[in-house]
């Protein structure tokens, strides 16, 4: 096979892998703070691209402003979901599966509302910088992929700084390790959970925004991305944010090389095969499961 073609699909695999990784980190952040697997994660990804599109096209906002505003709106929506859906159940000591189902319900509601508010047509966004692909050793690398990789690495770096270096980040880690002990230190554990939802939602939105220029967005793109992000989190070692990112890269690269070899029709099969392989061979994931 043509080595340039393989190189290209590796690059695009890394790009999409970064996006899976960010979505996977979103899963981990909420799971660590609460034990909840948040099925609304895909809705955040979809809304990121969709709201940016609406602000850009209908609102006539400058691109950058539309992006920032969209991320903020989606992050706020994450906080609202925690307040309106999760917290009331939590206070009533609802079983975990009820809260997980509630996030699935939130996903469906958001998807339907988006369908009603916009339409069912695919929407796209302009690339961040309109430049021709650059050639690296015979491989054409499109600039949006570079934006995705660089943006994702920057976000992972910022997250590491946040969790290791700030008072709030440390408090969130403490809640993940031992929620009750955290409460006993006077750490507002409910506030930390709301923050976790806001953070995950913001990450999902950024992932969706970076991705939309190379693909498209529509009211129903959320679930497939959430599944990929979820798989990334599992193969990285569930609850390990950095592992989820590595898991995303693994999944993205394997998937795009497989598409090259077997065709795009097997994309989902490949993703699930990677998942099964990990579950059989290394069920605790690349970095080993948290807790």
């Amino acid at each position: 096979m043509d080595s340039a073609l393989i190189g290209q699909s590796l690059v695009s695999g890394l790009g999409i892998g970064c996006v899976y990784g960010l979505i996977g980190i979103g899963f981990c952040v909420i799971y660590n703070a609460s034990g909840i697997v948040n099925f609304a994660q895909g809705a955040f990804v979809m809304l990121g691209g969709m709201i940016t599109h609406v602000l850009l096209v209908r609102g006539q906002l400058p691109y950058f402003a539309a992006i920032v505003l969209s991320v903020l709106v989606v992050a706020l929506l994450g906080v609202v979901i925690e307040r309106l859906v999760v917290r009331p159940l939590w206070k009533r000591n609802a079983p975990m599966f009820v809260m997980i189902l509630a996030t699935l319900a939130a996903q469906i509601v958001i998807e339907r509302l988006t369908f009603l508010a916009v339409d069912d047509q695919p929407k796209t966004l302009p690339v961040f910088t309109d430049l021709p692909p650059i050639m690296v050793g015979g491989v054409a690398v499109n600039i949006q992929s570079l934006w995705i990789v660089a943006g994702s690495l920057a976000i992972v770096g910022l997250l590491a700084l946040f969790f290791k270096g700030t008072r709030t980040g440390k408090a969130m880690r403490a809640c993940a390790i031992n929620r009750e002990a955290a409460a006993l230190q006077g750490i507002p554990v409910h506030g930390m959970l709301a923050l976790a939802f806001g953070l995950s939602a913001g990450l999902g939105a950024i992932a969706g925004i970076m991705l939309t220029p190379t693909q498209y967005t529509a009211f129903n793109v959320g679930v497939p991305f959430a599944i990929s992000g979820f798989i990334a989190a599992i193969i990285g070692g569930f609850g390990r944010p950095f592992g989820a990112f590595l898991g995303g890269l693994t999944l993205g690269v394997v998937q795009s090389v497989a598409i090259l070899s077997f065709g795009a029709g097997l994309k989902t099969v490949v993703a699930l095969s990677v998942l099964l392989l990990f579950l059989f061979v290394r069920p605790s994931g690349i970095l080993g499961a948290a807790k």
Partner: peptide, 24 residues
């Protein structure tokens, strides 16, 4: 302030971080 049964240390975090969180 309660020091709970089983201590409730944040195990993966450093001694310094544990103490800092006490003064959250």
């Amino acid at each position: 302030v309660l020091v709970p049964e089983g201590r409730g240390i944040f195990g993966p975090m450093t001694v310094m971080e544990n103490l800092e969180l006490g003064a959250y």
